[in-house]
Design a protein around this nucleic acid. Sequence first.
RNA 1: GGGGUCGUAGCUUAGCCCGGUUUAAAGCGCAGCACUGUCACUGCUGAGAUCGCGGGUCCAAAUCCCGUCGGCCCCGCCA
Length: 589
Amino acid sequence: MHKTTFRTHTCDELNTKNSDEKVTLSGWIMRRRDHGGLIFVDLRDRYGLTQIAIDPTKIAEANDIKIESVMQVKGVVRSRPEGMINAKLKTGEIEVVAEEIKILSTSKTPPFEIDSDKEVNEEMRLEYRYLDLRRTRMQRNIIVRHKVIKAVRDYFDKNDFVEVETPMLIKGTPEGSREYLVPSRLYPGKFFVLPQSPQQLKQLLMVSGFDRYFQIARCFRDEDQRGDRQPEFTQVDVEMSFVEAEDVMSVNEKLLIELLKEFAPDKKLMNVKLPRMTWKEAMDKYGADKPDIRFSLEIHDITDLVSGSGFKVFSEAKSVGNFVRGLLIPGGATFSRRELDEFEASAKSYGAHGLIYMVYEKGGIKSPILKYLKPEEVDAITKEFGAKEGDTVLICSAGFKVVCETLGHIRLVCGDKLNLRDKNVFAPLWVIEFPMFEWKPEENKLDASHHPFTAPMNEDVDLLDKEPEKARAKAYDLVLNGVEIGGGSVRIHDPKVQSRIFEILKITPEDAKLRFGHLLRAFEYGPPPHGGIAWGIDRFIMMILDEPNIREVIAFPKDQKAKDLMMGAPSEVPEKQIKEANISINLKS
RNA sequence: GGGGUCGUAGCUUAGCCCGGUUUAAAGCGCAGCACUGUCACUGCUGAGAUCGCGGGUCCAAAUCCCGUCGGCCCCGCCA
């Protein structure tokens, strides 16, 4: 298939049709089975495996056959003898009888086995990433990644989007995540930053009239790592002109469905037309802005139901702005005391004072608050949740954020415990109508939930003056199985609205000019109404491949502490370079 | 910044709770020998570990304690 100077075929191609052909293969020595008078070698390349049969009496180099060395074989294809066919192997009907072998390069014994699926220490894998990438899992992942990105490119191209490369060395706009800095040689004391996203550039491209833009964009964020976060990651960045939220969503959901059908054909797709769920509904029912809707276990609000209760935490909730909410866990009566304690502990870690259980046992209900509740209240709660014998209801009373986070978390934990989060199901949806702002108590001001260029919903523009915290945005997140795989918004193109938003965010006009001057100036020259989205494509590929960590889908990732263990970066650089960069190092001891 | 967890031959792990019957064990890999039909070849033989590092307790430490370094997971953070 890929005939080159060093080979006539790749290691997956040969079959009985090639019998008696003279061929040349090149690849890595994966296994050697030495029978004395006959040696078998499994020769591996990216495409597959071919068995080579070597007669050591005829071939002197047979002594040099060492695992993971690179070997070229010239020989003749032979059908395997009766009963010697390996059905597990694509090339299992034949073998190549070596007439001449040449070791093209030798390999030291690798630090871990390439030919094995067993888990290897992460440090080792990252240090020897080039060897880790030889293993089948990583070969598969990187190739699937390529294919997904290719499909994304083709899709947008087909739909008239233009891919534009935006610069990596840009101006810092302290807002949002911490940026990687690049000192300037020519301008002492000044810095470029690496983009945390091409956000402003793509909006400028709309001003330029490109109408439909996309980019497979590398982004950088100098923040701490998680299993699904790397300092350097790839975003499928999209922006469109003359659109409202629905236009952006429909283009992107078609792509999502195409990708899921092509790359995860064995999974059950819960929705082909994605549901739109408001942020409010997501928070109320699922306790999260990225709900996992593969299972229900919905949160119920019983604040009003228990407002007359003898249990003060319940009866006083409303007057202090708290919510009393709970979850019905079908079959939850089997949870052990220890499990219930764990739920309570995690509730406390989210800032709740406690978590109340009502276990519907055979003889009746077991609950620490039973003595405070009137029988009709107990009945009302039972009815509200639809609880029956064998179930458990977990109730939490706290402020909106805490009650959502607590129950949202416990919902997922219970979903896991009850095996409701089916790995073979994909349940995508859109979460829409996010609040424009989020209150930042530590800074005593409102912050943009999405970013400061997000447009408010038309019907909420008036709220900006009166109750900005109630205003909703034309923002949308693409959520898959409880994971946010993309997010975007319709942007503000009206300078008046934009300056009002800056005011609310306590960004002064001078400040705005300093940080976003380029964008504001551009918007004086006819910006079209526009909006867009960015996909975290690494995360999406991770889900397609059922991989638990983003590192598994990135060829050369950083470790948990953002180091490159293979290259040894970051590293010190020669004094000369420091000088030229016009910076001085002042280490805190 | 905080919490959790792990660190024992090249790799993967057992032993650690409850210190001494352990000359620190096993599988894989590696080296040597034998073998013409294997495909995770097989059989035999062998080398390979001061148990991450430093300190402490103890007659005695892989095992208990303190510190430290490193990997991973989580919280904060990620407009």
